[in-house]
Design a protein around this nucleic acid. Structure first.
Length: 552
RNA sequence: UGACCCGUAGUGUAACGGUGAGCAUAUCGGUCUUUGACACCGAUGGCGCAGGUUCAAAUCCUGCCGGGUCAGCCA
């Protein structure tokens, strides 16, 4: 009988077949090849988890290699953030960080080999001419008038390109393949272009830079990558990937493609993400509303939750749109196990316990995490005046509302049962305070009152409460597929951020940045980097599920 | 009107010619509960269509329909 753990995705099947055939002496080496021109997002996380975990599963390794072949778009700011994000996600690459730019010399030398074999030529055509001659997917292209230059001429021209003898854009090196190929990528693709730009690693050493199709496969081959896993849009590039390795007769890396992640209410395009940042729709790449790894980290998503999510969504070749709620489920699942429970009142209503002595403070003991037996407990001050959640009181409550109502009773979590005796309102009729009485013999843990109450609510002592800022986040977009009908900016949710003030229990004083907690009955929150000694700032990571409000 | 890839519950993903098409999530009920959370139980819901091969097809073949990708000196 087959169970889940035995079922393999299509990439695992390929690897197991390769292994059984003894390919590459049973070695598996994958790679994650980001271009350092943007921040990593959840879509990259899928690729990272896939590459690292599949290699690990089969006793192999994974290289981190920056695909830095386009100096005009790339920057070290991105190489730093990308490395940090991969590490944070929990993965280690065993070689030093690699760069395609480390292979510029080899790439150049291989290009010379191809020229010598008569398989590459220098083309003087303009960009427009090249584009025109390429033809259309439905009709063949035409050959460039420069296509049949002699090997010697090509060699000397390419040397000239390398030496900076020619203007940017005046010449390119092209592979000589087939202008009539039904595959556009085989119509004499460009291998090198002249770019008199400063590279973030090689400086001004080069003024010709290799194109992706040429550099990527050869870089894989140089490193001995056995399984080069990329997204579906590179599928039509594969014949070219193979062509270079075959003609050069170097290590036969193989490329496999999977469907990229799409998620509801989310955009994944680097260009659009950049626009959100640049136009100030969000507060930077690490804004907790961003689907970036840094944004999710700041929002309080644990790396284990993201890994779990990537595992759950699986890998296949069909287009997909994952429910955002699955990610949220994974986040809650992880946090439920790991986040200590604390009390935080987000929308406070004052309760005075009239029969509790003025000025007296008692300590009650509260379990830190019922899901974690080793989580221990802590003390919480209890006094005559407390804050409760405004929504935990209802004047005209329906029958099944088992929180506080006039003359109703409720358990204060970890403390006493109280009864609501009087509702105080202001002149506009809004409830501003509740006068309650407590049952002294109902103390949690030693309850001898015999009272049975259905509801338990959270609270904090007014005198001891910490006033904190809480940033409440909702999804950044209000439509499932932002931009599906028109401009994606029109689908931005205007209420994606609300900043409120809340009261939390004093045990939270001085908690470290990044700490994740559950505000009991409300949700998970994470201490933001904007916190100061005077004022803590929390980001809402996720709310708890709320079946009650759904039922209503 | 070319080439390549892909169609399994709302969503995602299994099945490798042979149980009643499984699992997760979502949705809806219920049990439990000093978190209306969590956990647990149950329900709704699926093989794009049509042929063919076969004792037997989600699975193999053909056609159709639908979706995606490709015409950067981006990756």
């Amino acid at each position: 009988m087959k169970n889940m753990s035995e079922s393999l995705n299509f990439l695992e099947q390929i690897i197991e077949t390769d292994l059984s055939e003894g390919k590459h002496d049973g070695k598996v080496l994958t790679r994650f090849p980001p271009e350092p021109n943007g921040y990593l997002h959840i879509g990259h996380a899928k690729s990272i988890c896939l590459n690292f975990s599949i290699a690990k599963k089969y006793g192999g390794n994974t290289n981190l290699r920056f695909d830095d072949t386009n100096p005009v778009k790339e920057d070290t700011e991105y190489v730093d953030s990308i490395q940090q994000d991969v590490e944070w996600l929990g993965f280690k690459w065993n070689t030093p960080t690699l760069f395609a730019s480390d292979y510029f010399q080899q790439l150049h030398d291989f290009a010379v080999v191809l020229i010598e074999k008569g398989l590459a030529y220098v083309d003087d055509s303009t960009q427009e001419e090249i584009s025109d001659m390429r033809g259309k997917p439905t009709s063949p292209g035409t050959e460039s008038p420069y296509r049949n230059r002699s090997v010697e001429e090509n060699l000397s021209l390419f040397e000239g390109m390398k030496n900076g003898d020619f203007e940017e854009g005046s010449k390119v090196l092209r592979a000589k393949i087939d202008m009539a190929s039904p595959n556009m990528h085989m119509r004499d693709p460009i291998m090198y272009r002249i770019l008199k730009a400063h590279h973030h690693r090689t400086g001004d050493a080069w003024c010709i830079y290799p194109m992706y199709d040429y550099a990527h496969g050869i870089s894989d081959s140089i490193e001995g990558i056995t399984h080069s896993i990329c997204t579906l849009e590179f599928e039509v590039h594969r014949p070219l990937y193979d062509w270079f390795l075959e003609k050069l007769e170097i290590f036969p890396s193989r490329q496999y493609e999977f469907a990229r992640l799409n998620m509801s209410y989310t955009i994944m395009s680097k260009r659009k993400l950049l626009k959100l940042v640049e136009e100030g729709h969000v507060n930077g790449w690490d804004d907790p509303r961003m689907p970036t790894v840094s944004g999710m980290r700041r929002k309080g998503y644990p790396p284990a939750a993201i890994r779990n999510f990537c595992d759950k969504i699986g890998v296949a070749k069909r287009e997909n749109l994952i429910d955002l709620s699955l990610l949220e489920f994974c986040v809650r699942e992880e946090l439920n196990k790991t986040a200590p429970r604390v009390m935080g009142v987000l929308d406070p209503l004052k309760v005075t316990i009239t029969n509790f002595p003025e000025g007296k403070t008692e300590e009650v003991e509260v379990i830190n995490n019922p899901e974690n037996p080793d989580g221990g407990s802590r003390k919480m001050p209890f006094s005559r005046e407390i804050w409760i959640e405004r929504a935990d009181f209802m004047e005209d409550a329906p029958r099944k509302f088992f929180r506080l109502k006039p003359e109703g009773m409720v358990r204060l979590k970890g403390a006493y049962i109280i009864q609501c005796d009087e509702v105080i309102k202001d002149e506009s009729g809004e409830v501003v305070e509740l006068k309650c009485s407590y049952f002294e013999n109902s103390r949690s843990g030693s309850d001898e009152s015999g009272l049975k109450v259905k509801g338990t609510i959270h609270w904090v002592s007014v005198a001891d409460a910490l006033s904190v800022e809480v940033r409440m986040y909702d999804r950044l977009f209000s439509t499932e597929e932002p931009g599906k009908d028109g401009d994606f900016l029109d689908d931005i949710n205007p209420d994606s951020l609300k900043i409120i003030n809340a009261y939390v229990e004093p045990a939270l004083k001085g908690v470290e940045e990044g700490k994740r907690v559950q505000f009991m009955r409300k949700g998970y929150y994470c201490v933001d980097q904007d916190s100061s000694k005077e004022k803590l700032v929390f980001n809402q990571t996720a709310t708890l599920r709320d079946n009650w409000s759904k039922k209503k």
